[in-house]
Design a protein around this nucleic acid. Structure first.
Lengths: 223, 223
DNA sequence: GAGTATATTACCCAATCGTCGCATTTAATT
DNA sequence: AATTAAATGCGACGATTGGGTAATATACTC
């Protein structure tokens, strides 16, 4: 389950003491390798581009460009690297913003180093991990719908969006703004085929045109 | 950091084989004690009330009352117990609904039992843990408007979109899937005007067509 | 082997879309 | 007073879209 390869980590953290502490603690693990460190976001971004780590430990309270800006900037060019936001107790309100910006996990700085190593392994594999102190806040942020709506959503999601794999591919291209011609080119089929798929997508999603389909797909996270 | 007390767990899962497998795997751990099992939600809820476990493993694909209903019902009376939603690959779309209902973690059934033990310990301490397969979906579901707010409040405005109020109105209708004709009717102007607005919206947003405009607007929370 | 589902291709047609140029009115700014 | 930006309107153009119907091929199920 857990990859056997070594996990490359870059640390972006302004306090030298914390930085050294993190590096020492993490390098105790054979499978975790701290390949780079930076005390500010600008250098950090450059380091990440050069070293291509699997995981970034990003302090949120950086001088100059702060952690959130750094995450946004990083995500503009790199969708794959996993970002663990590291912060102290006094910035817990930012959690939703940080996750929106593109972080994969959120830890408080007083986390047990051993636990942090586990989190790094999890996050490297794609897991989302949220510290206990703020997990409740995030979970409560999900729109509270009443029972009926929740149950309806569930049954609808199951029976009324049975897109085939091919249609799903087409939908993704559609959402990215491609025309039928472009979709056809992308999937190496004729325009007629692309149109046929779009047509059946519209019917299955119960919408009238591709704009509605795209919006619905984005809002419901189907893509 | 991690509590030294034994963690009491109740399993609610209809497949006997899976249930037994879970119990055996978890009871390998000295600190985890499977105190109860149930093959359906009704009995499961009763068990949880009696045994007061710290953690519940809740299968979502139960016969009769399903897992989501069970979670909702459980949360009516018990805010403290931690709920780990357990499911197979074919129900990944439910994840947001499940978290809204009150689950603390979301695992796929093919999780490594050792990993599951770790997750149980984490969740018992309040952590939110989401399987890699669905973490992306959840993280993407966070409203992107925070990004705009952030950029407005904090740093330089990147390529801000200076839409006029009228164009903004048109954009909202556009996102809701209306045609130019419908937009015109809605705003009580001619189709030509509506088209003119759409045209300038596309140019200002640097996109090629209304689908891209709609998707961009939704993703960035402009609407 | 028959039947069903999916993917693929094709054609026609009405409607819509995106762009361009041009024109008028109003409001705000200089 | 002159300029600018915004909102409104018109006509025309080619491109695109969505609907309908239908045929063929493949794959999977019963």
């Amino acid at each position: 389950m857990i990859g056997t390869d070594e996990i490359k980590v870059v640390i972006v953290e302004d306090f030298k003491l914390t930085r050294v502490g993190l590096r020492c603690a993490l390098n105790e693990n054979k499978d975790i390798n701290v390949v780079g460190e930076s005390e500010n976001a600008t250098d950090g971004l450059r380091l990440i581009e050069q070293l291509k780590p699997q995981v970034v430990l990003m302090d949120l309270g950086l001088p100059g460009m702060n952690g959130i800006e750094a995450i946004l900037k990083l995500r503009e060019t790199n969708k794959d690297v996993k970002i663990i936001a590291l912060t102290s107790h006094d910035r817990e309100e930012e959690v939703i913003t940080v996750l929106s910006a593109g972080a994969n996990a959120y830890c408080l700085k007083d986390i047990d180093p051993i636990k942090l190593s586990d989190v790094i392994r999890d996050v490297a594999n794609g897991v989302c991990w949220l510290d206990a102190e703020i997990a409740g806040k995030v979970l409560r942020s999900f729109p509270k719908q009443d029972k009926m709506v929740l149950l309806n959503n569930q049954s609808q999601n199951h029976n009324q969006v049975p897109l085939t794999e091919r249609e799903f591919e087409v939908l993704k291209h559609l959402v990215s703004g491609k025309s039928n011609t472009e979709i056809a080119k992308e999937l190496i089929v004729s325009v007629h085929t692309a149109k046929a798929h779009v047509c059946s997508i519209l019917q299955k999603m119960c919408v009238n045109d591709r704009v509605q389909a795209a919006v619905k797909a984005v809002k419901e996270g189907i893509v």
